[in-house]
Amino acid sequence: MIRFTAVNKFYGGFKALNAVDLIVKEGERVVVCGPSGSGKSTLIRCMNQLEQHDTGSIEVLGRTLGDDLRATDQIRKDVGMVFQSFNLFPHMTVLENCMIAPQLVRKQAAENAKDVAMDFLNRVHIQDQASKYPSQLSGGQQQRVAIARALCMSPKIMLFDEPTSALDPEMIGEVLEVMTDLAEEGMTMVCVTHEMGFAKRAADRIIFMSKGEIVEDGAPDDFFASPKTERARSFLRRLDLTPSTH
């Protein structure tokens, strides 16, 4: 589904991704972790071309991304993304947030888009807030709306970039629960998160990044039991000292 081959990405002179090779198969749940600034966001944002890579090749859902802008448009329809800062549209109601892209991009009729939206708002347990504006919701509720909004496009892959990092601790659970449900339904997911409980529960694979490189890539049990590199060991040690932050 996703194939990175020798991908490099520069910000000016700074190398944010260094010769990254990665394959994510259909139905796989991959958790990406690593210290701040290690290139996790850059990696995941290359998957739907919010960032353009410089060299190497990225193939998503059978299309090669890069100069072909039509391929990028096509991929964005089929790849959903959830951001750390929710990024709901503040001038639209919750329902409108969920209906706008299916109507504009998938050319769905309004009633159809509304049915689909209400269905997904139900699934994230927020149907009774449909007519409110995002600013009237709590952070956890907003993030669940953001997940529903992405799902309304019926994506084949879901990308999450630290979806719980901006949330108060008591709201993290409700968002992770929705993500766990999604994982159990078999959605292909790439998820940047430091919620190691979620990783153990829901992930098939853990990728550990450091300084723009993929340093470790393996099953969660192996990664937590016996990390192969010193960098991963010290990362895990620091996480244990300060659980559920960053």
């Binding site: 919010l50 964005r76 951001f83 800062s85 549209f89 706008i100």
Partner: peptide, 29 residues
């Protein structure tokens, strides 16, 4: 915030759609 345009891009909205439905309404407000 830049996140607004990124969210619209990630949903597959075209430049025109982003301008008409996400950027201009917020800018005018």
């Amino acid at each position: 915030p830049t996140g607004q345009e990124e969210a619209a891009q990630a949903l597959g909205m075209s430049y025109r759609q982003r301008v008409a439905y996400v950027l201009l309404p917020q800018a005018f407000k």
